[in-house]
Amino acid sequence: MKKILLLLADGFEAVEASVFSDVLGWNRWEGDGSTEVVTVGLRDKLTCTWNFTVLPEKTLDEIVLDEFDALAIPGGFEEAGFYEDAFSPPFLNVIRHFHANQKPIASICVASLALGKSGILQGKKATTYNHSTSIRKEQLKNFGAVVQNDLVVEDGHIITSSNPGTAFDVAFLLLENLTTKENADHVKELMGF
């Protein structure tokens, strides 16, 4: 069984988190059965971008990082306090741990900024929120990333994406990396993609 740590910052977008639990959950019951998602936050109660309240299964101090095979991080909104958690030392240290062990890291939208802040995107191809009025690409570049204009970017074991609309693509790519393309395609077909 491959355990995926779904790391949630206060102010995260629920839709971006749900794709990981759904795709990997479908795989557990209808695919090859090899994935388990554990939701983890810095606190025992989180508020999503649009005031949806979530109780993660575990807090960061209750888990052992070495027990996990992959990391998934949804993005969120600055106005909802996302960067307070996402840029905090404990959050960044989780990212660094997975990178140091070359385990898959999948991020959606502005979650790539946390990867950048952690230092793991130095010289790596990556993307982030891509709306023409957004300052996020410049921020990512300032963290040392080689910013791409693609919707989803994979560089080694790191996946980044450009907006919430890419969420399913990221989740399926993570599933493919953890299992096989054939298995990911099977789950896609079962889910109507």
Rank of each mutant, 00 (worst) to 15 (best):
V38F: 09
P104E: 09
V37E: 04
N27D: 08
E79M: 05
P90K: 05
G81V: 04
F82N: 14
P56V: 09
V94E: 02
L55D: 08
R28W: 03
F98G: 08
L24K: 02
L42P: 02
P74D: 10
V40R: 03
E16D: 10
L71T: 01
S88A: 14
I95A: 08
G75E: 04
V54P: 01
F52R: 09
Y83G: 04
V37Q: 10
I108D: 00
D44Q: 08
E67M: 03
I105D: 01
F20G: 02
R28Q: 14
N101M: 11
V40C: 07
V54F: 08
D22I: 12
L92F: 02
V40H: 01
A70M: 03
D32Q: 07
S107M: 06
L60N: 02
L71V: 08
E62L: 03
L46R: 01
T47M: 13
T47W: 09
C109D: 01
V94P: 00
A17H: 00
N27I: 02
G31D: 00
E57K: 04
C109I: 02
V38W: 09
A86K: 06
L42M: 09
S88K: 10
A72F: 00
G33R: 07
W50Q: 13
F98Q: 05
D61G: 10
V94L: 05
S18L: 12
E78P: 09
G76S: 04
V40D: 06
N51D: 15
E78V: 11
F52M: 13
V110G: 08
A100I: 09
R43Q: 13
D44A: 11
N93P: 06
E79N: 11
L42S: 04
I108E: 01
V64K: 15
S34T: 14
K45I: 12
F52D: 13
E57W: 05
H97E: 06
V19F: 07
T39I: 09
K45M: 12
E67Y: 03
T35E: 06
E16Q: 11
